[in-house]
Every structure is written in structure tokens, then in C-alpha cells.
């Protein structure tokens, strides 16, 4: 009986996914319009700040999904790269007066270099051992941030990080900051999507599905793991730079193991290898704590329970296992062959 129910449930879900896949362009446009008009319609600072969180965590969840979902490498230290980016941006802007455009670029590059440095000695390690290595990396980063006081000001953190500004115009209002992170998210989605539709993306997916077969197909598995790791950590660094300028203050407490687990939960809950899934997962887990303010003391319990229920209901994550591109291709192909049959 339970089986029958779950089968119906899956069929319904597949049907919905098929509709989404066929109308992906319209859905994208509507989502974009919604995202653009959101801060205009809801002008409350509180709501805009929550929305900024949704977008920023979307960048982080997508960047993590690039290695976890698309390549099969689980990282428990993603916040470490975010921290590297945030500190790079904070130091460059407070000490050298560098504009946020350039601190963002520098943060992306420095974080991806850290990714490469971590990857070179460790990416030959398999699965769960690698996960432990990334956990260690996140902790080491936090300890460095705490103890290298001359560079990071240690537990005092770095304050007075300048606001984002462009051509002398400061983005002082929340609505401005909102649009900056929206643009960063769009760039992130675009980059990851383009990659996944290229031979590099196919190399990533093949490594995830079967490393030995990928190797036998002429793919330098180690090289592509390094490339994936570099891009993923670079994007996390970009989100970190945004965070630094958005908050105006950072300290090591912002980039802890808990933060890495939060990002990983967003990625897993949204669905492996799904970009829309990561956005939904990030938004859901950003909004949930706010929505649960009503239950005050029981917040953590309800939060945990809800997460558990979702994972039991759909272990592969909300959109996990549904590749909209594949669904669309298959649908169009079936339609076109039907068309041929009719004409014969």
C-alpha cells in the first residue's frame, strides 16, 4: 500500500516536472520578474534583508552543488572558502581602499587558489576521506582567522568595511544591496549552467557517475576535479566578498562548521545537481528560521523536524533526480517522432 502511494506521488511529481521543463523559459522569466520587482513591492527592510540572505545562500548552495551534485565530491568546509573571500575583500577594502568590484574579483581568485591548493594534495583521496579533509580545511581556516591577529584582527573581527559603490555612487539602501546580490546570483547561475552544457560539464558528470569509465574515455579525472574545485571555491569566495561589504563587519564566527553544514543542507535538500533546486533549498532554509520566530523556544526543534520530514519524504532532495534539460529533450524528441509517424 505504501508502495502504491509513493508510486502515485512520484508520478504526480514527474508530471509537474515535465510541465516545468516544457515551460522553463516562461518560468525563468516570471522568476526573474518576481526577483526584480520584489524589493519594490515589499519595501520593508526586514523582508529585503531576508531576500538578500536567500540570494546569497543561493550562490553558496549552487557553488557547492557544482562539486557535490555535479561531481560527487562532498565538502564539509565550504564556509572556509566563503571566509577566505570575505577576509580578502575586507582586508583589501579597509587597508588599501580597493573598490568592491575589484575586491570581489580578488576574493574570487584568492578563494579559487585556496581551492586549488587544497585540491592538489587531496583530490586523489576518495569519498568520505575527502569529506573529512574538507572539514579539517574549514576548521584550519577558522583557526587562522582567529589567531593571525596582525592580518585578520583575530576575534575582534574587521569592522568598518566600506559599502559597495560604483563610479562614486554608494549603494547605501538595502534595495541596492539586494540588486547587487541578484546580479551575482544571475552570473553564478549563468556560469554553472554554461559549464554543465559543455564538454567540461560532461566530464564532471562522467566523473561523478563512474571515475574508472571516465578515465577510460580519455578524461584526466584529477585535472577536472581540480578545475571543479577551483570554480566552486571561487564562487564561494565571491559570495564571501559580498557578505563582507553587505554586513560591514566580519569575524571568524561567521564562517564556522555550522555554516558549512547549513550550506550543505541547502544543497542536499534542494536536490543534487539541480540549480533551481539549490535556489529553492537556500531560500527555504533562509526563510524558515524567520517564519519560525512565532514558535520562539521550539524553533530549533521544529526546524530540525521539518528538515528530517522533507528528507524522509524525498531523500534525493526536492528537485534531485530531475534534470529539466533531459526531460525537455526527451519530450521534444517524442513529439517530433510522433509528427513523423502521422505524416507517413
Amino acid at each position: 500500500m505504501a508502495n502504491l502511494n509513493s508510486k502515485n506521488k512520484n508520478e504526480l511529481f514527474s508530471k509537474i516536472m515535465e510541465i516545468c521543463a516544457r515551460n522553463s523559459l516562461i518560468i525563468t522569466i516570471i522568476s526573474l520578474l518576481f526577483a526584480i520587482s520584489f524589493p519594490i513591492v515589499f519595501s520593508s527592510q526586514y523582508l529585503i534583508n531576508i531576500a538578500i540572505n536567500c540570494l546569497m545562500y543561493s550562490v553558496l548552495a549552487i557553488s557547492l552543488n557544482l562539486i557535490t551534485g555535479f561531481m560527487g565530491i562532498t565538502s564539509l568546509g565550504h564556509a572556509g572558502f566563503m571566509g577566505v573571500g570575505a577576509y580578502t575583500a575586507a582586508i583589501l577594502s579597509t587597508r588599501y581602499g580597493v573598490n568592491f568590484i575589484f575586491t570581489s574579483i580578488a576574493a574570487t581568485i584568492v578563494a579559487s587558489l585556496f581551492g586549488i591548493l587544497l585540491g592538489l594534495p587531496t583530490l586523489r583521496i576518495k569519498g568520505r576521506y575527502l569529506a573529512i579533509v574538507t572539514l579539517g580545511f574549514g576548521e584550519i581556516m577558522r583557526i587562522i582567522e582567529l589567531n593571525w591577529v596582525s592580518l585578520t584582527r583575530g576575534p575582534m573581527g574587521i569592522s568598518g568595511i566600506p559599502r559597495m559603490s560604483l563610479f562614486g555612487v554608494a549603494f547605501s539602501k538595502p534595495i541596492h544591496k539586494y540588486y547587487v546580490i541578484l546580479v551575482l546570483l544571475i552570473i553564478t547561475v549563468y556560469i554553472v549552467r554554461s559549464l554543465m552544457n559543455s564538454r567540461i560539464g560532461r566530464a564532471f558528470s562522467s566523473i561523478r557517475d563512474d571515475e574508472i569509465a571516465a578515465d577510460a574515455m580519455g578524461i584526466n579525472v584529477f585535472k577536472y576535479k581540480i578545475i571543479g574545485f577551483a570554480i566552486s571555491s571561487g564562487l564561494a569566495g565571491l559570495a564571501g566578498a559580498y557578505y563582507a561589504h553587505y554586513m560591514g563587519f566580519i569575524d571568524p564566527n561567521a564562517f564556522t562548521f555550522d555554516e558549512s553544514i547549513l550550506i550543505l543542507s541547502m544543497t542536499i535538500m534542494g536536490g543534487m545537481a539541480s540549480i533551481p533546486g539549490s535556489i529553492i533549498g537556500a531560500s527555504f532554509l533562509s526563510i524558515l528560521p524567520e517564519a519560525l520566530r512565532a514558535v520562539a523556544d521550539y524553533r530549533q526543534i521544529v526546524y530540525g523536524l521539518l528538515l528530517a520530514v522533507i528528507m524522509v519524504f524525498k531523500p534525493s532532495g526536492l528537485l534531485g533526480g530531475y534534470n529539466l534539460k533531459h526531460i525537455k529533450q526527451r519530450f521534444n524528441f517524442e513529439q517530433s517522432t510522433k509528427g513523423v509517424d502521422n505524416h507517413v
Binding site: Y190, I191, S194, L195, N197, S198, R199, I200, G201, R202, A203, S205, S206, R208, D209, D210, A213, A214, M217, G218, I219, I227, A273, N323, H326, Q329
Partner: peptide, 26 residues
């Protein structure tokens, strides 16, 4: 490659015969 389509499986085999890089793809 079980989460890839039949076409993509074969396109992976084409990997070293095609030469577009990261920048080209983006």
C-alpha cells in the same frame, strides 16, 4: 554514466577530440 543520456554518454567519449575550454564554454 547512469545519470546521463545515451547521447551524452557517447559525447563524453568525444572528449579528447573536441577542444573548447572554460572561457569558450562560459
Amino acid at each position: 554514466f547512469y545519470r546521463m543520456t545515451v547521447l551524452e554518454n557517447v559525447m563524453v567519449g568525444m572528449h579528447s577530440r573536441t577542444k573548447s575550454n572554460l572561457i569558450d564554454s562560459v
